[in-house]
């Protein structure tokens, strides 16, 4: 029943854990102070500054470490919020159906109809640029898909005989939802959570790149890429470092998510046996 993760998704998970460790390093200034000026401006990677220095002479390595941390923390917080909201509404709408279901579905469709970055910029325009805008954007961008999928899973679970048996036994709504529906859609929530995390990272990157998200001097992957963009020809390492980390993070999360999905939501494969 429980199969282990395949090698690829194990690699993804390892990569992700390495990035988290990498980010944690910045909290103890493992590679030095991210704001300290340590050398010449725009120096290429060398033994003292492995990822080069930026336009102010700050070492890029600790800045990328801080940036990964900011981005991951922001995205994870947002995804947890998304998961909580989506689980609540998705499960209730899926189990109850009827009017509530229609309202939830229509709301989700409205949100879904905005392209992610347009929605994010809109949120930033209303809330003003900053971390909070980035957080809210990620939540709003990831909620529609997660709610829809949780709802769909909840509809399926609600029709299963053990839920009917609980209703016949006289179980009340909180028990049915909490004991029977939630544990059986938890897999969907976890899998969609990983995908939402990668969406969150790219939304943060995009928003901060446009200047509406995390504000300097605090580093995030988006902020670093934005700053590096101005020196793309003269000092490409400014953008290659954080860019690579961004790509690796998203790739690792998606690969891990695929493995998680295969394990938690094995599709009813039509085998010939």
């Amino acid at each position: 029943m429980r199969r282990p993760l395949d090698l690829l998704s194990k690699g993804g998970l390892g990569c992700l854990l390495a990035l988290v460790a990498f980010a944690l390093g910045s909290t103890v200034d493992l590679a030095g102070d991210p704001d300290a000026i340590v050398g010449p401006r725009l120096a290429p990677p060398g033994p003292e500054w492995w990822m080069g220095t930026d336009n102010l002479g700050r070492s890029m390595l600790p800045r990328v470490m801080e940036g990964v941390g900011t981005t991951l923390l922001l995205s994870c917080t947002a995804v947890l919020l998304t998961a909580a909201v989506s689980a609540a509404f998705g499960i209730l709408a899926g189990y109850r159906g009827g009017y509530l279901n229609e309202v939830v579905l229509r709301l989700v469709e409205v949100l879904y109809s905005f392209p992610a970055i347009v929605l994010a910029v809109l949120v930033a325009a209303v809330l003003g640029p900053g971390q909070f805008a980035a957080l809210a954007s990620i939540v709003l961008v990831t909620i529609p898909l997660m709610t829809r999928l949780v709802r769909a899973a909840a509809v399926g679970v609600s029709q299963r005989d053990y839920v009917t048996a609980a209703v016949i036994s006289g179980a009340r709504l909180p028990r049915i939802l909490g004991r029977h529906v939630l544990p059986n859609v938890a897999g969907t929530i976890a899998v969609q959570g990983t995908y939402a995390l990668s969406v969150g990272i790219s939304v943060e990157g995009g928003l901060s790149f446009l200047g509406f998200g995390v504000q300097p001097p605090q580093a995030s992957l988006g902020v670093l890429i934005r700053q590096g963009g101005s020196y793309m020809i003269a000092a490409p390492w400014l953008i290659i470092g954080p860019g690579t980390v961004l790509v690796v993070a998203i790739l690792a999360i998606n690969v891990f998510g695929d493995g998680l999905r295969d394990r938690l939501e094995p599709r009813e494969t039509r085998s010939l046996t």
């Binding site: 299963r160 005989d161 053990y162 009917t164 048996a165 609980a166 016949i168 036994s169 006289g170 179980a171 009340r172 028990r175 004991r179 029977h180 544990p183 059986n184």
Partner: peptide, 27 residues
């Protein structure tokens, strides 16, 4: 009470058998 169709879905896969059997009493 009822005994329903599908043995595959008649019990909550995330609950131990004993808890499933006890549920009507607990409720």
């Amino acid at each position: 009470q009822a005994v329903l169709q599908h043995p595959h879905w008649s019990l909550n896969p995330r609950m131990r058998v004993g808890r499933s059997v006890a549920e009507p009493l607990v409720v």
